[in-house]
Amino acid sequence: MNIIYILIWGTWIIFGISVVWALSWAVGQGHMSNVEEAGCSIFDEEEPIGEMTDFFPGEGPDGAVNGGEDAHG
C-alpha cells in the first residue's frame, strides 16, 4: 500500500500546488479583480449582450424570437 499513499498524497500535493500556483498567478495578473468585465468578454459589438446567437435553421432572429412578443432581451 505504500506506493498508494505516495500516489495519493503525492498527487494531492502536486494538484494542490498547481491550483494554488494558478490562483496566485491569476491574482497577480489582476484576473481576479474586475471579474464582471471578464464575464462580458465573450460578447462584442457584432454579438452584443441582448441578442441571441443561435436558432433552428430557417428560424432566425427576424422571425419569432428577438422581435417576437416574448422577447425579453
Binding site: 464582471e36 468585465e37 449582450i49 441582448g50 422581435g67 425579453h72 432581451g73
Partner: peptide, 12 residues
C-alpha cells in the same frame, strides 16, 4: 434588435 437587456452592465 430592439431588445437590449435591461441589465446591460456598464462595460457593454
Amino acid at each position: 434588435m430592439a431588445d437590449r437587456t435591461s441589465e446591460t452592465p456598464p462595460s457593454a
